[in-house]
Write a protein that binds this DNA or RNA. Sequence first.
DNA 1: GAAGTCCAAGAAATCGATTTCGTCAAGGTC
DNA 2: GACCTTGACGAAATCGATTTCTTGGACTTC
Lengths: 320, 320
Amino acid sequence: MATIYEVAALAGVSPATVSRVFNGNTVSPEKQRAVREAAAKLAFTPNKTARRLRKQSSEVVALLIPDIENPFFTALARGVEDKAQESGFSVVLCNTDDDPGKELRYLQIAASEQMAGVILAPASDEADLGAIASLGSPVVAVDRTTPYPVDAVKVDNRAAGIAATTALFDAGHRRIACIAGPVGIESTEDRFLGWRQVMTARRAAIPEGYLQHANFRADGGHAAMRHLLALPEPPEAVLTTNNLMGVGALQAVVEAGVDPARFGLAVVGELPFMFLTPPAVVQVRLPARHLGTTAATMLLERIGGDAQPPRTVVLRAELA
Amino acid sequence: MATIYEVAALAGVSPATVSRVFNGNTVSPEKQRAVREAAAKLAFTPNKTARRLRKQSSEVVALLIPDIENPFFTALARGVEDKAQESGFSVVLCNTDDDPGKELRYLQIAASEQMAGVILAPASDEADLGAIASLGSPVVAVDRTTPYPVDAVKVDNRAAGIAATTALFDAGHRRIACIAGPVGIESTEDRFLGWRQVMTARRAAIPEGYLQHANFRADGGHAAMRHLLALPEPPEAVLTTNNLMGVGALQAVVEAGVDPARFGLAVVGELPFMFLTPPAVVQVRLPARHLGTTAATMLLERIGGDAQPPRTVVLRAELA
DNA sequence: GAAGTCCAAGAAATCGATTTCGTCAAGGTC
DNA sequence: GACCTTGACGAAATCGATTTCTTGGACTTC
């Protein structure tokens, strides 16, 4: 790979002039032409590492998501990527496995790699943004917020929980349980608070054990559903606060010999490939890509110098 | 963020000594202790960009995949990531959208960012590895091969196509069509060659139009299936050469009012969430994660100095 | 003619970590 | 005692691109 010194020698100018041709304007047309020709002949590509070190910045942003195999997050990543690319930025996708230790490591890497900013679906309320914040790099929290004063984009999760639970009520169900994600995750809590709000408003009983916490994955939803079905007074319907747990719950229902068409299931998020889903399943569609593009837009504004106070944008989910 | 100069000043040594403490061995125990204490007090993290520029290498590898929303590739990515992390490497995941232009751009970025190597699911036979090859950085092709002399890991795709088609035959189907991916993709071609091989060996007719090419996605499979169903002599079964096209094909079958339980479908790859799948669907399970871990292992060996001639490892798919 | 201003462009410094080179001291061998 | 080897460690160079500083020439104004 050719260096700027080789281009300069071939063009008969100094390296500073080569740099000026590509980054600034005070070069005569004659020397500009010589430089561009030399660069083309040598297929010159600036060494991005050297640029990054000198400029203390780069055209790379990090996206930290908790589970690369969850279609919600891959759709969100697509949204981020599409928007970032429009502005000449690359996205480094980091999979935290919902593990705060992994998350911290990626945040440190983002800082020591001079990344232009970070979009973060936090693994917990304890995301440590110290390293990245001390550099003044912008951060946007997506889907879940963080105590740090940073921009955020999220879904109105309580409204999603309300809409899903209301739909189960409207379908005639009264004994409605809830399978939520791990304790301490904001989007989880808001969704089951929506469930509880509807149950309370409708004066429906919430028997002991009707709120189960699981691990966000199909196997967690499966285990929780089995637990619910083993209760003295099993539910006739269930809300799961994410899509993969909904799959696991439905699986447990089928395995227990319960007719899926008569069991009520509401899922926050989309079950993949809807036509294969029993007709009675309520799905609350999350705007995953829109979350991604919105987060990227906000981050790009910060990178571009936007200095207004941190804000939170709330997007609506909708019944599918 | 503290620099090595600040650590050196606090420890009362030169920056070269600080570097030696963390990278070499010729430092007295007394000075080692002073350096480590100073580094801890200042929360020193080496500036990775500076390291990378000086060393002309990094602990980052790139993984280029053609579709981040295809579960096959996200599982492959998980395999790569798990293996790379074991050895202290980070993975940069790049989504090429099966677009050779995007692929080329990412390859150039990998070169100008001094990445340690690239694992590449090529977007076409024309992947241009010139930039990365001129740096001597190792490349491993995964799932599909490339004309460049590099290591490769793939599935025995012809055997997968043979197994899938044979299973349809054994289920009693004789009019078996094939929906393949875009022309020119090696894995696609091997799979439909497997289909054709079985059809020929079993002396089954292949009417005009029984081989459809589609775009790898559910919508492509959907359109191709509709085309097949509109033939004068529609097939009673179909092989799709990837999972998403299988979903689209099944959707078209349902929409056409054909009973999915009586229509034969074989899919190379796993349909998501099997229990929702009509029981007659044949699935040939691809070892996606194993592809990933194998590719990463080979790349790490190359990074570590392995200089033997390029090799290709072929993994087997299996009937689910 | 002298002084001031502006522009183009080369030389040198900068970014932060690593490596190379040179020096000194200690120990061993002849 | 002289010479050689080894280890520790500081000073300087290196990586490649960008930015800052300085200089010279051209032009304008007084």
